[in-house]
C-alpha cells in the first residue's frame, strides 16, 4: 500500500524539480506580483503595511492557481493519465498524493518566501509571523480546491485561464479568513485564533472534498 504511494510521491517531486518542471517559477511569479503592487498604489509605507497581508494572500492565490493547470494535464498529454486511472489504486488517494507533492514543490516555497516579501511591504514582525502562519495553513486548501478545477479542465487545450475563473470563487472563503486572521494578529482587540481556526477547518474540509470531487471529474474525463 505505502510503496506505490511513495513511488508516486517521488515521481511527482522529481518531475517538479527537474528541467522543465518549473516548481520555482511560482515563487518568482509571487515575487513579481508583490513587487508590482507598490508601483500601482505608490510607495507609501504605511499604506503598504496596512494592505500587506492582503497583497501577500492574493499573490499566493494567483501563484498557486497558475501552477496548477499542469497538475493532471501533463499526465493526460502523454497518456499517463489513462494508466493511472486503470492502475487499480484508489483514485482519491492518488489525487491527494499528487496534491501533496505539488504543494511541497510549489506551495511550501511560497510560504518560505512570504516573510522576505513581507519585509518589502513594511510589515511588522508579528504581522510577518501571522501571514506566514496563515499561508502555511491556507495554501494546502488552495491547492486542493484548485485540483478540482485542474481535473475539470484537464481535457481542454488551454485550461489555465478557465481553471482560474472556475476556482477563484471557491477560494474566496479561504482568502477572507486568511487575511482576517493575519490582520487580527496586528490589531489587538480582534482575536487571532477565531479566523485562524476557521481557516484550518477550511483546509481540512478541502482535504476531504477536493480529492473526491477531483477523482470523480477525472473518471469522467477519459470518456
Amino acid at each position: 500500500m505505502s510503496s506505490w504511494a511513495l513511488s508516486l510521491f517521488q515521481r511527482e517531486l522529481r518531475l517538479a524539480v527537474r528541467v522543465g518542471g518549473g516548481a520555482l517559477v511560482g515563487v518568482l511569479f509571487f515575487l513579481a506580483v508583490v513587487t508590482v503592487i507598490p508601483f500601482g498604489v505608490g510607495p507609501d509605507l504605511n499604506l503598504l503595511a496596512r494592505i500587506g497581508p492582503a497583497i501577500l494572500w492574493i499573490g499566493a492565490l494567483l501563484a498557486t492557481l497558475l501552477g496548477l493547470d499542469r497538475l493532471f494535464q501533463a499526465d493526460r498529454d502523454d497518456g499517463s493519465l489513462d494508466l493511472i486511472l486503470m492502475a487499480g489504486r484508489p483514485l482519491e488517494l492518488v489525487v491527494l498524493i499528487k496534491c501533496l507533492a505539488h504543494w511541497m514543490a510549489t506551495g511550501l516555497p511560497l510560504v518560505a518566501a512570504a516573510p522576505v516579501l513581507a519585509i518589502f511591504l513594511n510589515l511588522e514582525p508579528t504581522a510577518i509571523g501571522a501571514v506566514t502562519l496563515t499561508l502555511a495553513a491556507g495554501t494546502p486548501a488552495l491547492t486542493l480546491i484548485g485540483a478540482i478545477g485542474a481535473s475539470l479542465t484537464v481535457t481542454l487545450r488551454r485550461g489555465g485561464l478557465l481553471l482560474a475563473v472556475l476556482v477563484i470563487p471557491l477560494t474566496i472563503p479561504v482568502l477572507i479568513f486568511g487575511v482576517s486572521a493575519a490582520d487580527a494578529a496586528v490589531n489587538d482587540p480582534v482575536p487571532f485564533m477565531t479566523p485562524f481556526l476557521i481557516l484550518c477547518s477550511l483546509s481540512l474540509i478541502s482535504l476531504v472534498v477536493g480529492p473526491f470531487a477531483s477523482a470523480a471529474a477525472l473518471r469522467f474525463s477519459s470518456d
Partner: peptide
C-alpha cells in the same frame, strides 16, 4: 526600516527579478 521603495533600491529589485526570470527560462528549456 529594512526596505523603502526608493528609486535605486527598486530598480535593483527589478534587476534581481530579471536575473531569476532568465534562470527560469534556461531551466525550463531542454
Amino acid at each position: 526600516t529594512y526596505w523603502v521603495w526608493d528609486a535605486r533600491l527598486t530598480s535593483v529589485l527589478v534587476l534581481f527579478i530579471m536575473y531569476l526570470g532568465l534562470m527560469a527560462l534556461w531551466r525550463t528549456m531542454e
